[in-house]
Nucleic acid binder design. Structure first.
Lengths: 393, 393
DNA sequence: CCGCAAATTTACAACGTTTTAAATTGGCGC
DNA sequence: GCGCCAATTTAAAACGTTGTAAATTTGCGG
């Protein structure tokens, strides 16, 4: 057993000889500064464990290579290794390459916790999942896309579910306050969405799925629901339908207005009859939509053209109508928004207009990365056009 | 400006007077150990910045309260504060309460990165999302449940999507090797699932959705698919169907066998005719299932009872049958597994047996927490019974 | 008032990384 | 050989927390 280091204060029991000894072997000697307030220090002398007894490391990461490992292997300093891996400009090409080689060889990966602690950046993107999302895999489509966008980056995707206690705003506030992520993604925006307001006020990077009406610009990806509603309605009219209707999203959401506008524009251009159910919206349970359609189609002057901005509402409409004996494509038509493959696979007679949610997710991820990198938000807006390329029978 | 600290080696330009001075004021003097290989050290003397110039803190967490903040406010040591917040036994009730009060007042939350770095625990639960999950919100149901289970814990839920490059096993390996999480959750197990093998070998905590056939036990939550298939088939028989069929999950998955077993047991007990499509499984796209059903029902001696272990397959079956002019409930019957509200809302004539995925998610979360806490895995297995409480018309 | 044990509080180091500021090296002109 | 500049490498401190081991305070019997 060998004395490797020694700590001493300048108190009574100062062991001069030990210090001398350490100095000769190049071991560090520590003169401890006394506590400012009270002079408490009693003399200390500490002896390190012998070199062969490894300090008990945290078992969960035993043997995990760190910068220190590479430093020892290459004979460089930890700083240099860090620099080399970060491709810092002042590192010579030679050592840069060598460090990279060794790192790859031993499978080094930087410790996220340490990086996060040091830099304050979390390398985390958080998605606020809303329980009211269209059940047909909205969440997973967006996630697919996000995952793809973050694939080659150091970012991880963490899900902050809204479903539970606390409102959306609380979740956002929590994330801002505690620096739980570097950026945020969420959907179903309102014109003056309180989440957006909060994030804007705090300068926190985020991308929404859906627009707002704040004068301050922010990054968003949105689907052109005006175009969808206009086109869907127009197609119903072209098919010769006499009275059209649309199931709109809840009034408080921004895209309610967009859809309404598209629908009304097409209706007015054609001068056709229409009606808009007001006891019902896209968030209503499928059986409620089904029952409404069934009841309404049994009453006088029912609509015969349905614009359905969701697959579930389309299926519910079909069921309600067929309960009354109406045949899709003959006595009535549906043009629906399609976000998964399900609807067209199940019921090919429904005409669909596609919204690519996976692409939306990917775009949101990319925009968020750009936003975090500091690009001006004015450039970070995407309006997805409906794809009109589907065959019209 | 005041000299507060000084670093010196025992090289030529050793400034003895400066050291003396430091000693007298209680400032630390550092005898730097020379680099082992080459004796490089030249003497150094450093002067600290004046105390009034605040060190430039990371802007992203400016003002965020830390243990130090509380320590300064209460006049206690950082260690004591940490202890008090951790409710360590050796802290007096008095200071414990005071620290908790101050912490609550200033809204202190521990820095996850620092905790993680120090303790090696990540406080993260990772979910492996599989792209082949039933599209109808399997992922989100599980996530709901998990979120609820982790609600009052320090754990966060992070999604490691499988969808992209790399197999399941690679993702698991990555998580183990780099300590990205304290526990793992995934589904769709195979009898000798390589992910399970890997995790068992490394003693990494995990809970699967689905069983395996390893002799080493592990934590799982599974749905009793034997009971489902048996009960579904029995109901078809009770309804007077003459020939039953079932769309099974892919052969490599463990629950393929369970379902097959349940189905065959019911069939054999009743001595009824049956058939099992072998070009088709639950992962087949809906249109493929629909086309198969349509074709088969046009051929001689078609089945008139369908056990559908998924809502999509049920919808596809209905479409295929109605394309041939068959009426559900009259000429044929379906008993389907229901995991969302969609199917029964859209098509109430389908008889359903419920699988509560949200409850499964919550159970998996709880089991995983217990597993991490070190409870024996033998006790951490749950077999969910089908709920037979749904009205049979 | 002393000694001693128990109760409570404390300093220090460490986790693995990045940042700052400084030291070292090499080259070049004299 | 010296001084100087640029290129490269370096030590030390810091991020906020917890574990270890020690110091300090308190209480109590004499």
């Amino acid at each position: 057993m060998q004395i490797r280091a020694l700590v001493a204060s300048h108190g009574k029991r100062f062991k001069f000889c030990a210090v001398q000894d350490c100095l000769q072997r190049g071991a560090p000697v520590w003169f401890r500064r006394s506590t400012p307030a009270i002079q408490r220090n009693a003399p200390v002398s500490r002896i390190e464990k012998p070199a062969d007894s490894e300090p008990a490391r945290n078992p969960s990461r035993a043997g995990k290579p760190t910068l220190k490992t590479i430093a020892e292997m290459t004979g460089l300093a930890i700083t240099t290794v860090s620099r080399a891996l970060g491709n810092a400009p002042q590192i010579s090409e030679n050592t840069r390459r060598r460090v990279h080689e060794v790192a790859a060889e031993i499978g080094y990966l930087p410790d996220r916790a340490a990086q996060r602690l040091k830099t304050g950046r979390t390398n985390v993107i958080s998605v606020l999942l809303d329980p009211h999302e269209e059940i047909l895999g909205f969440g997973t489509s967006i996630m697919h896309g996000l995952a793809r966008a973050l694939q080659a980056t150091p970012y991880h995707l963490i899900v902050t579910p809204n479903f539970l206690d606390g409102s959306n705003v609380d979740a956002v506030n929590y994330i801002i306050r505690n620096g739980m992520a570097d950026g945020l993604i969420f959907s179903r925006t309102e014109p003056f969405d309180p989440r957006v307001r909060l994030l804007l006020e705090n300068g926190f990077p985020f991308v929404t799925h859906g627009r707002t009406e704040f004068s301050t610009p922010h990054a968003f990806v949105d689907y052109d629901n005006y175009a969808f509603a206009y086109e869907a309605t127009r197609r119903l009219i072209v098919k010769g339908r006499r009275k059209v209707t649309i199931i709109l999203p809840p009034k408080r959401l921004t895209f309610h207005q967009h859809m309404l506008h598209g629908f009304m524009t097409a209706v007015r251009e054609a001068g056709i009859a229409y009606e808009i159910p007001d006891t019902l919206d896209l968030d209503s349970p499928a059986d409620m939509i089904r029952d409404y359609v069934r009841r309404r189609s049994g009453e006088p002057d029912p609509p015969d053209g349905f614009a359905c901005p969701g697959e579930v509402s389309a299926l519910a409409t079909i069921t309600g109508m067929s309960d009354q004996g109406f045949t899709l494509g003959a006595e009535y038509d549906i043009v629906a928004k399609q976000t998964s493959l399900l609807l067209s696979q199940i019921q090919p007679k429904v005409e669909t207009i596609y919204e690519d949610l996976k692409a939306a997710g990917e775009a949101m991820g990319q925009l968020l990365l750009q936003r975090i990198a500091g690009e001006p938000v004015e450039d970070l807006t995407i309006l997805q056009s409906p794809q009109f390329g589907f065959p019209t029978p």
